[in-house]
Nucleic acid binder design. Structure first.
Lengths: 114, 114
DNA sequence: CTACTGTATCGATAGTTGTCAATATGTGGA
DNA sequence: TCCACATATTGACAACTATCGATACAGTAG
């Protein structure tokens, strides 16, 4: 192995083929979309995402202060966003650099009728 | 008063002026957006919304069977979606008719970088 | 007014989640 | 090797939520 690690495993599920506003959702589609939206339904995670998106990439250690949260809490939130495919992390040395995944956000908007 | 009642009170908060992807969110913006997204982060509510949106309007009593949930549970979910401004209810006689609020969905998509 | 019916609310319960202190893991430097 | 530091994980706790049975409320019809 010689690969730069992407920290937690992302849930790359394809959200849903059609939009919520078009046709009744199947149970599995609803569960998948709800999972991703749950990742976004927390104020700390939304602020975290906006902080990362505002710059090209941000180190975990630079998130604690602006968020006002402890290191384990920040780690927890980055993990949730990463597993939802919204954030992508890259470990370089001792640090993990996070950047947003705009395509995933586009998928979510599309599932919401965009 | 002689107005056809809109059942629960909708939270008409303006979500946020800018998108999550553009600039760091203020605490209040994050809380408001998170509240609305939390209303969408449940599989039952997503299916409920898709059922309502697929038709012009749907009566509460016609939701229990397709959702497979009890009447109090359906009532709970419609209330949550209504308070988030995503669903609008109109009481006519003994029935409540629900229809989707596409503008609210558009607001949400915009806040998500649309 | 009374009976019936659709909806909302209450109370209880099980499951989930955000938070942090403590600890473990991993990485680079001396 | 040993230390320092960035991050992840664990364990515990409080707060929240989805669910349903029981019940209250609000209209309609008789």
């Amino acid at each position: 192995m010689a690969k730069v690690a992407v920290v937690p495993e992302a849930d790359t599920a394809g959200l849903c083929c059609s939009s919520v506003m078009e046709a009744p959702l199947a149970e599995a589609e609803a569960v998948g979309l709800a999972r991703v939206l749950a990742a976004l339904s927390d104020p700390v995670r939304l602020r975290l995402l906006s902080l990362v998106a505002a710059q090209v990439e941000v180190c975990s250690c630079d998130l604690e202060a602006p968020l006002g949260k402890s290191q384990p809490t920040v780690s927890h939130h980055t993990k949730v966003l990463c597993e939802a495919g919204i954030l992508v992390g890259e470990k370089r040395g001792r640090w993990v650099w996070w950047h947003a995944n705009p395509e995933r956000l586009a998928e979510i908007r599309k599932a919401l009728g965009g």
